[in-house]
């Protein structure tokens, strides 16, 4: 039989040590999520009720619910999606199905990477300069949503492109050989098989969009508005900005209130994320080829 040498034993010990260290690091990195959820639940859980979700803030935002902010966030996210999903899917279809390997394609890819990396406050400056002032939308849901749309566009593009590229090339060739045009091929075979992957990306984008604060601060979100928006040219409250406002700008807020608002916000975001992760897992199990 082989005898374990001292060297072997030392290697094995190092291996176990390193493995434990990396596991510890991973856990320390991941633990804050649970910790934060725990803290928010403990301190803000008592706030949660249907009344909290469906009444307006009162007493200078020191009491009452979050209805206008909740509705505002839904408006902002919906309009942002309406703008970004068609453009993002078109861009992804171009990159995945049409783009030749040339300089322009490389420039587009670089633009997408940079669009994702531009600081959110710079997006806010852009939204202010472009949509609010130049295009004359004023501080409005429209201006804020378009700012959010451009900011989250890379999320849709990247997710959609991945979903499209996961569809085997052989399917496209089979369609082309039958005389299908590029678009018929995409519409009848590629997109139907990528739609769930695209959906995963869109849901992820919803979660990103709902949580953003900086881009909407100067483009369309208001500190306090006692009524619900009636059109896209109105300003609106938003959950994310509402949390910022009551946490930093409003005096004498009862301690539990901002925790409650944070809990609702993070609940929305994580629910969307869970949906996205769930969909992805389900997809992986449901193979079509």
């Amino acid at each position: 039989m082989f005898e374990a040498t001292d060297l072997n034993r030392r290697d094995a010990r190092t291996q176990r040590l390193v493995r434990a260290l990396f596991l510890l690091m991973t856990v320390l990195l991941a633990a804050p999520v649970l910790l934060i959820l725990g803290v928010l639940l403990v301190k803000g859980g008592t706030m949660l009720s249907w009344d909290f979700l469906f009444t307006e803030p009162t007493n200078g935002m020191t009491a009452g619910g979050v209805l206008p902010a909740l509705v505002g966030t839904v408006w902002l996210v919906a309009i942002a999606l309406l703008a970004s999903v068609p453009v993002g899917v078109a861009a992804a279809v171009y990159l995945s199905e049409y783009a030749p390997d040339n300089v322009l394609t490389r420039v587009i890819n670089l633009a997408i990477i940079n669009l994702a990396g531009v600081p959110s406050i710079v997006h806010a400056l852009f939204g202010l300069g472009a949509f609010v002032i130049f295009f004359g939308f004023g501080t409005s849901i429209l201006a804020a949503s378009l700012t959010l749309a451009i900011m989250t566009l890379p999320v849709v593009i990247v997710a959609t492109r991945e979903a499209l590229q996961a569809v085997p090339h052989a399917f496209r060739e089979a369609c082309w050989n039958m005389g299908a045009t590029r678009w018929q091929t995409i519409w009848r075979v590629v997109l139907p098989n990528a739609v769930s992957g695209i959906l995963t990306g869109v849901i992820l984008e919803v979660s990103r969009t709902a949580g953003e604060t900086a881009p909407i601060m100067f483009t369309g979100a208001a500190f306090f508005l006692p009524f619900l928006p009636a059109s896209v040219f109105d300003q609106t409250m938003a959950m994310s900005l509402h949390l910022f406002v009551i946490a930093t700008q409003v005096p004498d807020v009862p301690e539990a209130l901002p925790y409650g608002v944070a809990l609702v916000l993070i609940g929305m975001v994580l629910a969307m994320n869970a949906l996205s992760i769930g969909l992805r897992t389900w997809l992986r199990q449901k193979k079509k080829w």
């Binding site: 078109a90 861009a91 171009y94 633009a111 472009a130 995409i186």
Partner: peptide
């Protein structure tokens, strides 16, 4: 098919337009 090819091309180029637009507007202001 030709029309869609143009549309998705516009979508693809929009990313470049946006990043240039961001720089242009922020610089302009």
């Amino acid at each position: 098919d030709k029309l869609v090819a143009v549309l998705v091309f516009v979508g693809g180029v929009s990313a470049v337009v946006f990043i240039v637009g961001i720089f242009a507007f922020v610089t302009h202001e």
